[in-house]
Amino acid sequence: MAGAAVRVEGLTHRFPTRRGPLPVLESVELEIAAGGYASLMGPSGAGKSTLLSLIGGLEPAQHGTVEVGGDRLAGLSRDGLAAFRRRTVGFVFQHFGLLEALTAAENVALACALTGTPRPERRRRTRELLAAVALAERAEHRPAELSGGERQRVAIARALANRPRLVLADEPTGNLDDDSTMRVMGLLESLPAEHGCTLVLVTHDRSLAARAALRLELHDRRLHAAAA
């Protein structure tokens, strides 16, 4: 499956607060080629996660255009955005975002269930994905029984459950030690080549960001090419 090209034009976003709207993004322009790998850096509060949310359809853009794989997100209903996320996007969070009461396999299977995958196919796909992140033998473990690196690998397996064309990783190694970081990054960076999807990585780590083909930095609410 081909990755999704991402195009953002004139994106402006404000957070509503009690003291009035707080500007987060101003006229952001961005273009990532299908199957590309982009990293996004910036200080805390710069709006990295907001930009990722807007690209991933977690919230609608207030001003400007977001287009992913030819789909314009503006004007989509809440259900429409949900369908877009289900079809097109895989998320990997810093906090892993696994459901604590479910096993690793159940977490992955849940993502399959949301796409309407039949149960036998769900089981097969879950086994396949957990094997791909080298966690087949930990399938029946709950997140609390896994290390940080293992949890993030389960999260990556879950993100791939719907065969996404775009994977958005929000500081996926923020809670991991060096070994786990390398293993998780190896997995993520293999996605464009092995799964054909576009990868956007938000990170504070310059060395990790430097590994991306397209390096971006958010500061003063605007997006800039990152310094080498």
């Binding site: 259900d79 996320r85 696994l98 993502a111 719907n162």
Partner: peptide
């Protein structure tokens, strides 16, 4: 809240 957000991020609709 976060768990519900994650559910939605992976494609759950409001009615789900």
């Amino acid at each position: 809240r976060r768990e519900i957000g994650v559910l939605k991020a992976i494609g759950a609709r409001d009615r789900d």
